[in-house]
Amino acid sequence: MIIDLLTQGVEMILVLAIAPLLTGFVRKVKARLLRRQGPSVWQPYRDLLRLARKEVVLAENASWLFRTAPYLIFAATWVAAALVPTFASGLMFSWAADLIAIIALLGSARFFLALAGMEVGTAFGGIGSSREAMIASVAEPAILMMVFTVALIAGSSQLSTVARFMATAEAGLRVSTGLALFALIIVALAENARIPVDNPATHLELTMVHEAMVLEYSGRHLAVIELAASLKLLLYLSLIGCIFIPWGMAASGGGITGYLIGSLLYLAKLGVLGLGLALFESAIAKMRVFRVPQFVGAALMLGLLGTLLLFF
């Protein structure tokens, strides 16, 4: 019981601790691909500390919701990220929410982020929230169709069960799995505000979405939101890892060695996926904002096709 609780606690701390590292790693690789030196991979930690130490400058008409929203966004994202199996499956609270609930938790975070964008009543906040609502309206059904496909293949929407099933030979190679992977990658790009949907590195660009919503935030509030964004990226990469490359994940009660191997493999998976993300982002240009629904709509169709193909 105590050990189980401890393992679950370690997982929660682990995802929180390495999320900024992943963001820093992706930035570093992108910089190297552009033949720049780039900041150190530890830079996101320094940024977070710096932001947390600064005072908050709040707009005059910001309400209590504006001040609590960052913590709610962070909490929902952190809980969701901690529920995705990382180095081991079947942890103590892994049954508290299945994949549908994890997606919905991210929806809660997005809801409050979009509200925070509307809060102060500036044009930039509104543009961000409005576009986020549009992108989410396609991305959320897309990921749910991906969930359907995976849940029907594995016979469960419980991530630990899915991970265990996908590691067996029974899962095999299927067209539906491939379609689901594509759908998840597209949605992950859209949800994490990556190129080609949004550019995480810019401010003051008329096509921006995520950065526009958080424009009014400063100091510790911004730090918490940035941390939540890193956690979300980590969550999506963990999700891809857990469903499509689940090998090496320890089972619950797998002993220290199992957990250690699982953790090392997990870090390796994150590294490979982060590298892939950086490569993809460097190779492609940003889209016009009204091309995005078509791009993400493709994921919705892939997900639906994946589900329907399972019946034949």
């Binding site: 500390l49 400058v57 008409n61 609590t68 500036t122 401010h203 009014e216």
Partner: peptide, 25 residues
């Protein structure tokens, strides 16, 4: 999680706050 985050930040980091006009770039 929300309470812990708020506690940790207010305890060890800053809890200073200033009101100003909206930034809006």
């Amino acid at each position: 999680a929300a309470l812990t985050a708020a506690q940790v930040i207010h305890r060890w980091a800053s809890h200073a706050l200033r009101r100003g006009p909206a930034w809006d770039c």
